[in-house]
Structures are given as structure tokens and as C-alpha cells.
């Protein structure tokens, strides 16, 4: 497997040894912690209120209320099956792809409820993008077409130069431009796993969403590709509101400003948000014993 992510001279940060850059990442992170008590009218801030998520008769997630601040990374952690992925998918109504899924409660962004009566889930997804666990570039499309997929499939007419600009801008935004600029017309599936995932991120930001949801984006990647993605998240949070679900607590600690811990009492029971706080606090001095057990590895 080739990992041009570390070899490329333009990416000075990734060239540094892994340990150093992680501490560097942590440094940047603490610099930009967003005040949780920021003004309410902040654009792109997400307010979740009393959200219950159901699949048919099954209640998957119960009574979640949280505030997700813009220009930051919010991590959701918790044991398998605790509903954190379901919750993430409910933030852009992707969970509705499974028939019989519905919610109770509200998710408000920019004064609008995502679950309001006249809201079109398709329109929601254009504003709130998503990156998945496994990289999933469209196999029938070239790298450039993958990036343009959102725009093109939504029948936006793009002039050739606009399209080229958008491809370059998005790929640069995903730190992938230098690695693929010579083979934009080649299939996206020819890239390495980490590059494919960054291509998917480029594809997601090309539709210019306000929020970027990431569902365990690194779980299928090797450590070096993971580092490249984490690096990218820290850059992207200046422009987007990023929410990430991760199994990897170190990752949550490295990249996020705030962390929410989900848990579940037993199989068949709904998942719940146990606590949410600044990442530092969750990992050093959480207020709930359950959280303490989980982050110290005694449970889950």
C-alpha cells in the first residue's frame, strides 16, 4: 500500500514523526476550545432537544439533548450498540434510509427544525454532509467526477472552469490535491484507503455543507492514514461544524473540543447520552462514574 500522505513534501506537518505531531495536534486543540456558553445565535450551531429515535417499535436512542457548537470538533464515544451512530445519522436524517425509522423531539440549526413538517430530508443532507466508516467513492466515476458528484447529480450546471476550480478547491481542502492532481480522470477506487477517505471528504465538502458528520471515519484505515485524516479535521473545523463518532478514545482526545459519552443499560434498551463536556474534562475528571469507567478502560 502506498502512503503518499507522509511522503509528500508539501505536507510538512505529516512529515514530522507521529508522536510529535500528536502533541502538536493537542496543542492546537486546547488553543481553540470554544466556550460552551457562546451566544445562542451563533450560525450553524445545532441544538438537540429531547430526541428519541425509533426503528419501528424499537427505541434506539432515548432523550438526548445537547448543543453542538460550530467551528469545533465534537466527538461522540461509547460502547458498541449505544446508539451514537444512530444519533449521528439522525442529525442529517440519514437514519431514515431504513424504513420505519422516525424521531421524537427536535434538532434545530439556524432557527430551523430539521424535523419540521415541511422539511425535505434531501435538502437537509445538502446542508449537513456525511463521511462514512468505510471509504466509498463511486466506482464508476473518476476522481474529479467523484468530487463533483454532489453538484452534478443535483443538476447544477457547472462551467468547465468552475468545475475545475471546485475540484481543486475541494481536493486542496481535503489535503489530497497534490497527490492526485495528475490523475484526476482515473477511477477513485485506484487510490489507497486513506486517500479514498480524503476523496470522500472532498466530495462531501464540495457541496458546501455547514456541518460535516463523520461516522468512525478512520476505523478502516492504517495509523498513518488516520493521522492524515485527524490533521485534516483540525483544519476543517475552522470552516465547518464537525461531529465525529469514534471507537478510538485516543482519537477523541486528540481531535475534539467537546466529547459526548453514550451508553446503554443492556441489549434491547435504548442508548442514552450519559454526559457531555469539554474533552479534557471527560478524559481527566468526568462527573459520572460510568464515564470514568469507560474512559479508563474498565468497561466497554
Amino acid at each position: 500500500m502506498n502512503r503518499p500522505a507522509v511522503k509528500h513534501p508539501n505536507q510538512s506537518k505529516v512529515d514530522t514523526p507521529v508522536t510529535e505531531s500528536i502533541s502538536a495536534l493537542q496543542a492546537t486543540q486546547t488553543d481553540s476550545v470554544v466556550d460552551p456558553n457562546a451566544p445562542v445565535d451563533m450560525p450553524n450551531r445545532i441544538d438537540v432537544k429531547d430526541l428519541d429515535i425509533y426503528y419501528g417499535d424499537f427505541k434506539a436512542v432515548e432523550n438526548v439533548s445537547m448543543t453542538i457548537n460550530p467551528n469545533s470538533v465534537t466527538a461522540l464515544i461509547g460502547p458498541s450498540g449505544c446508539g451514537k451512530s444512530t444519533f449521528l445519522r439522525s442529525l442529517n436524517r440519514m437514519h431514515e434510509v431504513i424504513s420505519g425509522a422516525y424521531v421524537d423531539g427536535s434538532v434545530i440549526i439556524n432557527g430551523k427544525d430539521l424535523y419540521g413538517p415541511s422539511v425535505d430530508p434531501v435538502a437537509v443532507r445538502r446542508k449537513i454532509g456525511m463521511v462514512f466508516q468505510r471509504p466509498n467513492p463511486f466506482p464508476t466515476m473518476s476522481i474529479a467526477d467523484n468530487v463533483l458528484a454532489g453538484k452534478k447529480l443535483n443538476s447544477k450546471r457547472l462551467s468547465k472552469s468552475d468545475a475545475n476550480d471546485l475540484v481543486e478547491k475541494s481536493l486542496r481542502g481535503a489535503n489530497l490535491w497534490d497527490e492526485v492532481k495528475d490523475r484526476l480522470d482515473k477511477p477513485g477506487s485506484g487510490l489507497s484507503g486513506g486517500q479514498q477517505q480524503r476523496l470522500c471528504i472532498a466530495r462531501a465538502i464540495a457541496v458546501e455543507p455547514d456541518v460535516l458528520l463523520m461516522d468512525e471515519p478512520c476505523s478502516a484505515l492504517d495509523p498513518i492514514s488516520t493521522l492524515a485524516i485527524e490533521e485534516l479535521m483540525l483544519e476543517l473545523k475552522d470552516a465547518y461544524n464537525i461531529v465525529i463518532v469514534t471507537h478510538n478514545m485516543q482519537q477523541a482526545a486528540r481531535v475534539s473540543n467537546r466529547t459526548g459519552f453514550f451508553s446503554i443499560e443492556g441489549t434491547g434498551k435504548p442508548g442514552k447520552l450519559i454526559e457531555m463536556d469539554a474533552t479534557e474534562k471527560i478524559f481527566s475528571n468526568p462527573s459520572k462514574q460510568e464515564t470514568q469507567d469507560y474512559v479508563t478502560g474498565r468497561f466497554g
Binding site: M94, V97, V122, A123, R125, M130, P139, L153, S155, V207
Partner: peptide, 15 residues
Amino acid sequence: ELREASYALGVPRWK
């Protein structure tokens, strides 16, 4: 995953 990727870009189902 390909269908989901497309939905997540705000592409309607028929497209």
C-alpha cells in the same frame, strides 16, 4: 454504501 454516500450528498433517491 454507495447509495448512502449519494444520499448524504443530498441527491434525491431517483437520481
